[in-house]
Amino acid sequence: MDASPLGSVDKALLALDTLAGFGAAGAPLATLAQAVGVSKPTLHRTLAALRHRGYAEQAPDGAYRLGPAALALGGTYLAEENLPALLHPALTALSEEVDELVHLGVLAGREVVYLDKVEPQRAVRVWSAVGRRRAAATTALGRALLSVQELDDAALARFAGDDTTPRRLRAALADARTSGVAGETEENEPGIACVAVPLLRAGRAVAAVSITAPVERLRGAARAERVGALRKVLPSLLPAGLGVPGAAG
């Protein structure tokens, strides 16, 4: 590896990487210095600078750990307003792989908001458009997002609303949790079906991606092929820190 053009910055970045590796418990100065490969006085100065900006903090027992400013970076980077630009290349690659319509959506109350949309070469006429909303309970995107939440009976009833029944929604979410993929068939538009996966950060869904196609292209082997593309294409193109759930069994 080439030498860093600015050694002090490189030491600070190495210190952050090392702190992240020790998690919430942190580590004492001597342990960190050994892991980073610098002397304790050198690392102490680096940590003092990081603490000054909130990127590191010292626990009552003396251990150092990541500070709130470092933890906030990931949230800012993956904020809703940044997701379309960050994820558009992944959506485009997925659409090209299956030649189907691909959507990106996030949860807003009881609804899914469409943040981005990539059209295939073969046109598929559907209601969706960037900025539009649809009930989360009846969409593959919404079910993917809800499948990673713990919903009690009251929450299930609230999300179901007048669009479906709590029992039907519970069954759809259970299936999504088991398979890692949510789906819906002709619940929003005749002849149209969708499959979707949540995009996870530290176990929490920050968005979901779906494939929308005519029903005949989301049945049997054709559905399995498109679900496979969701799992194969997306992970390698997602920003660091985002992933998709794996299938059970």
Rank of each mutant, 00 (worst) to 15 (best):
L237C: 07
L107R: 14
A160L: 12
A229L: 08
A70P: 00
R134N: 05
H44S: 15
L199G: 03
T212H: 01
R110A: 14
V124S: 00
A72G: 08
T178I: 00
L47V: 07
P245L: 02
P166I: 11
R168E: 15
V36A: 02
A240L: 13
Q149N: 05
Q149D: 12
F159L: 11
A3K: 14
S179Y: 04
L104T: 05
A221L: 14
A140Q: 08
R170T: 09
V38Q: 04
P166T: 12
Y114C: 12
G228P: 08
T165R: 12
P245I: 03
E216P: 03
G180F: 04
G246V: 01
G228F: 09
A85P: 00
G37V: 03
D152R: 10
A208Q: 04
A25N: 01
P190A: 14
A33H: 04
K117N: 00
R53Y: 14
Y64L: 10
L145F: 07
V215W: 08
R125I: 09
Q34Y: 00
A20Y: 00
L71C: 09
Q58F: 02
R167Y: 06
L66R: 04
T165Q: 10
A182R: 05
L6V: 15
R204V: 12
G21R: 10
T46D: 13
G191R: 12
T178K: 10
G131S: 07
G241L: 05
E100N: 07
P84Q: 09
R51Y: 02
A48S: 15
A137P: 06
E216A: 14
A213T: 08
L87P: 01
C194M: 05
R51P: 00
A248F: 02
A193K: 05
P60K: 04
A135W: 13
A155G: 10
D99Y: 04
G180I: 05
G180K: 02
R134K: 09
E81Y: 08
A59M: 00
T46I: 14
A154C: 07
R223H: 02
G191D: 05
G131H: 09
L238V: 06
R53M: 12
A144V: 06
A3C: 06
T178D: 05
E225Y: 05
L83F: 08
A221K: 13
T212Y: 03
